[in-house]
Computed example of a mutant assay.
Amino acid sequence: MPLMPGAEPYHHDAGQIGVLLCHGFTGSPQSLRPWGEYLVDHGLSVSLPRLPGHGTSWQEMNHTRWEDWYAEVEKAFEDLQGRCAEVFVAGLSMGGSLALRLAEVHGDAIRGLVLANPSITNDVPLLKLAPVLKWFLSSVPGVANDIKKPGVTEVGYDRTPVKAAASLPALWSLVQADLDRVTQPVLVYHSADDHVVKPTGVAIIRQRIPQATIEELTDSYHVATLDNDASRIFAGSLDFIRTHASVPLRRD
């Protein structure tokens, strides 16, 4: 099936430290592409896969589940691990949940995590009904493109595929159950004005991952990596990686 323009995956080798970027639910690699290019420009290798069912059509996405999305980031992580001395993982929204799951499974093989508006709990009323709605509706209004900055558009679906969404609670439950396994350094960016993800998830992370640093974004909505605070996320993540990497990183 043809890809939406801009939804292509992005991979580039630029150094011995690798960063795996995980995009969000119904979004695409486009939402993280500027972040990835920034990290490459500063000497890091980046892998930004396209999750199955994303970047094509919401109808196709209805044939995929969270296990498919996790399998793709797992594959990308193993590939990056084979090419780099160490790996950091970052994610936006549901991509943050996938990043946390990778850290829970792989432990010290992941050097650190950077999460932007992570979605780890079922705090959206409509999604709570998804396991029932999937028998009656194939889609509902979409959640993509929550961006404050004028003129910026996220490449994502304008409809939410209900069968795919119905698989999210299982992912969230699994991630929450094992949060105590996350011992790596964690940096979280949280938009104060987010119309997609409520503050509940960040509160859970604050309580369950005591080493996590939470930074509030005051000028962005949910897709903060394309919004007014994007440069702050990019620079902050680079500083975080420089602080916690055990191998040298190029200095500008």
Score class of each variant (00 low, 15 high):
Leu126Gly: 00
Arg65Asp: 13
Leu92Tyr: 00
Gly27Ser: 15
Val143Cys: 05
Leu137Lys: 14
Glu216Tyr: 03
Thr243Leu: 10
Leu113Ile: 07
Gln30Ala: 15
Asp227Ala: 10
Asp178Tyr: 12
Ile233Ala: 07
Lys134Cys: 11
Ala177Arg: 14
Val46Ser: 06
Glu104Tyr: 06
Trp69Ala: 13
Ile241Met: 14
Ile205Arg: 03
Leu115Pro: 08
Ala192His: 01
Tyr157Trp: 08
Gly43Asp: 02
Asp123Val: 04
Ala85Pro: 00
Ala166Val: 10
Asn122Gly: 09
Asp146His: 04
Gly55Glu: 05
Thr200Arg: 12
Asp108Val: 11
Pro210Ser: 13
Glu154Val: 09
Ser237His: 02
Thr183Ile: 09
Val19Cys: 07
Ala166Asp: 09
Ile205Gly: 05
Ser139His: 14
Ala203Gly: 01
Gly6Ile: 10
Pro131Phe: 07
Cys22Thr: 13
Val140Asp: 07
Gln81Arg: 15
Leu98Met: 13
Gln30His: 14
Asp41Leu: 11
Phe25Ile: 04
Leu113Trp: 04
Thr160Phe: 05
Ile110Trp: 03
Arg181Pro: 05
Asp123Trp: 09
His54Leu: 07
Leu102Lys: 06
Leu187Glu: 10
Gly27Asp: 14
Val89Gln: 09
Val188Asn: 01
Gly236Phe: 00
Val46Cys: 04
Ala235Glu: 15
Leu171Cys: 09
Asp108Phe: 02
Val196Tyr: 01
Thr183Trp: 00
Phe88Val: 06
Thr153Trp: 01
Ala177Ile: 01
Thr243Cys: 05
Ser57Ile: 10
Arg65Pro: 02
Ala85Phe: 04
Ile147Lys: 00
Ala203Ile: 00
His23Cys: 09
Ser173Arg: 15
